[in-house]
Amino acid sequence: MSRMIDEALETMRGLHEIGAVNKQTLRDFETQCLPPPAYTAETIKRLRESLHVSQAVFAAYINASISTVQKWENGEKKPSGAATRLLSVIERKGCCRRSKSA
């Protein structure tokens, strides 16, 4: 798998060099090829707590069950690739929050 990813990256970089792919597309492609970060039980709990939300609210943010979040935080389960990427986005950008107006 790593060899295929390396070859795909090389191809995209070549396409960028000849002007067939712009810089943003190349950057997006390179980002997608990065392995997702590993999240431990502690880092997931810290992330949730940094957002000042309960497990139930955090589960709702990421469209997961409360038991899934509990199992992640207890170390019984690890997030899947898609969930890991979502956690990475939340870690970098935060969660959407409702405005206090209204």
Rank of each mutant, 00 (worst) to 15 (best):
I44E: 07
C95I: 09
R97M: 07
K100L: 06
R85H: 13
A41W: 04
P36Y: 07
E42T: 07
Q70E: 12
C33Y: 03
M1H: 11
F29C: 04
G81E: 14
G19R: 01
L47K: 14
W72N: 06
V21N: 07
G94S: 09
V69N: 04
Y39C: 04
P37S: 05
E17S: 13
K78V: 01
K77W: 13
E30K: 15
S88W: 15
K23E: 15
L26D: 12
R98W: 04
C33S: 10
R48A: 06
A20G: 02
N74K: 15
K78A: 04
G19K: 03
S80H: 07
T68D: 05
S54V: 03
R3F: 00
S101D: 05
V21I: 14
L15Q: 05
Q55D: 06
E17N: 13
Q32Y: 00
I66S: 04
R27Y: 04
I5Y: 03
L51G: 08
G94T: 01
A83G: 11
Q32A: 01
S99N: 05
L86G: 05
L47M: 08
A102S: 04
L26A: 11
P37C: 03
E17A: 14
V69S: 06
V57T: 13
I5E: 12
T25W: 06
H16G: 02
Y39D: 11
Q55E: 09
R27L: 08
F29W: 05
Y61D: 13
C33F: 05
L51P: 10
G75T: 04
L34C: 07
I44P: 10
N74G: 05
I90P: 09
A20I: 02
S2M: 04
E76G: 03
Q70K: 15
E17K: 14
G75D: 13
F29D: 03
T11N: 05
K23I: 02
E73A: 09
I5K: 15
V57L: 11
Q32M: 01
E49Q: 15
T11Q: 11
L9P: 00
A82L: 14
E49N: 14
G94K: 12
R85A: 02
T11R: 13
S50E: 12
S88F: 08
A38F: 13
A8M: 09
A64E: 10
D6L: 04
